[in-house]
Design a protein around this nucleic acid. Structure first.
Ligand SMILES: [Mn+2]
Ligand SMILES: [Mn+2]
Ligand SMILES: [Zn+2]
Ligand SMILES: [Zn+2]
Lengths: 133, 133
DNA sequence: GTTTTAAATGCAACTGTGTTGCAAATGTAG
DNA sequence: CTACATTTGCAACACAGTTGCATTTAAAAC
C-alpha cells in the first residue's frame, strides 16, 4: 500500500504532509526523528502540523513513537507484529540510530498483586551490528 | 545514612540543595519529578542548580532517572539492587505515579549477531494497586 | 464542475525542559 | 581564618510541545 491508500484505509484525509511523513518513514530502515523526517521531506510544513500529524498517525496505528530518552524521540511505521505483539527497540549510542527489533518481543512481566498492565516498553541501548565491525 | 553522609561517601560537596534533593527523594515511596521535588523542598533554588544537581547525583549513582515518556521524567534513590541488576519501572496512568519495581529485573534479551548491549530499560504502564481498589 | 462543510493547516503566543558562560557565593582543606 | 576549587544564580538561548483562531483544503453533496 502506498501512503495515500494507507490513509484512505484508516479513514484519514489524504493531505500532502501526512502522505509525505508516511512515505519518508516507510523508506528508511531505522526510525526517524521529527528533524530527520523534515529534512527528507520536500514540502515545508509548520512544526504544529508535524506534531498534529504525528499524533493522528500514531492514534490510528499507522506509525508508532519510540521514546529513547527525553531528548530522543523517533517514529517508525506500524505498531504491532503479526501476532499483535509489541517489539523492543534498540538505540545505538555510536550512530544514534533506533531500530525496531521485530524479533525481540516485549516480555510478559510478572507483576505484584493488584497491578494491571496496559503497555510495556523495552528500550535496549548499546552498539549496533554496523558500528561493531 | 543521611543525605550529608551519602554525599560525603561519594566525595561530593555537601550543599543544601543536594542534601535537600536526597532528603525529599528518600522520604517518598514513589519517584518524583523535578517539580514535585521543588514543591517539597524549602530552599528556593534556581532551575539550573536543580539540573546540575540531578546530573551530579545521577553520575555518582546516588539517584537514578526514570524517563517514562518525553514529558514525564522522575527521580528515585539508588540505581541497582543488591545483585547490581537494574529493575523495571511502573507508571500508573491514573495517579501518574512511578514506582521502582525492585522485584522485576530488566530482562536479559537475546539479540541478533553483532549487537552489544550496554543498558536495558523496561517501562511498564497500567494502573497500580492503589488505583485498582 | 461547482458548491458546501468539516477537517487540516499556518501562525502567534505560550509553557516547560535542557544547556552554556560567567560572575558571585560557598564548602572544604590547609 | 584564609585560599581555592567548586557550586550556584542569573541571563540568555535552543528546542519540544501545546492551544486558539483565522485561513485553507479535501472530499462529499449537488
Ligand atoms: Mn518499533
Ligand atoms: Mn527505579
Ligand atoms: Zn550504530
Ligand atoms: Zn495509581
Amino acid at each position: 500500500m502506498n501512503p495515500s491508500e494507507i490513509l484512505f484505509s484508516h479513514n484519514l484525509k489524504r493531505t500532502s504532509c501526512r502522505e509525505g511523513i508516511i512515505q519518508v518513514i516507510g523508506s528508511n530502515e531505522t526510525a526517524l526523528s521529527e528533524q530527520e523526517i523534515r529534512q527528507q521531506l520536500e514540502g515545508n510544513y509548520d512544526r504544529t502540523t508535524y506534531f498534529r500529524s504525528f499524533k493522528t498517525l500514531e492514534d490510528s496505528g499507522i506509525i508508532h513513537k519510540i521514546v529513547v530518552d527525553n531528548q530522543t524521540i523517533k517514529y517508525a511505521l506500524g505498531a504491532y507484529n503479526k501476532e499483535n505483539r509489541k517489539h523492543a527497540h534498540f538505540y545505538c549510542s555510536k550512530c544514534q540510530k533506533v531500530k525496531c527489533m521485530t524479533t525481540v518481543l516485549t516480555p510478559e512481566v510478572p507483576m505484584p498483586e493488584g497491578y494491571r498492565i496496559s503497555e510495556t516498553n523495552l528500550i535496549i541501548k548499546g552498539t549496533c551490528n554496523n558500528c561493531n565491525c
